[in-house]
């Protein structure tokens, strides 16, 4: 898969989490990318392993937006 297609796939997963009411609760960065933990009241925590640089930028933008909306 090209980097771009992988980014689109990861972006779709991130968007899906927000669409169903999750928000970013924690981010752990390591050699493999970023583990983004999503939380929703009354639901179990979900974790996405985001690998591409563009998707890591993308969730960061959404995190900033999330903070602004608090």
């Amino acid at each position: 898969m090209s980097d771009y297609k992988e980014y689109l796939s990861e972006r779709e997963q991130i968007d899906r989490m927000f669409e169903i009411g999750y928000s970013i609760e924690n981010v752990q960065e390591n050699l493999s990318g970023a583990l983004v933990m999503f939380e929703k009241i009354g639901s179990e925590t979900e974790t996405l392993h985001i690998k591409t640089a563009d998707a890591r930028k993308y969730f960061s933008n959404l995190l900033l937006q999330q903070r602004q909306n608090v």
Binding site: I24, E29, S60, L63, L64, R67
Partner: peptide, 8 residues
Amino acid sequence: RQAAIGSL
């Protein structure tokens, strides 16, 4: 970005 992640 790092400030936002750090704040979590």
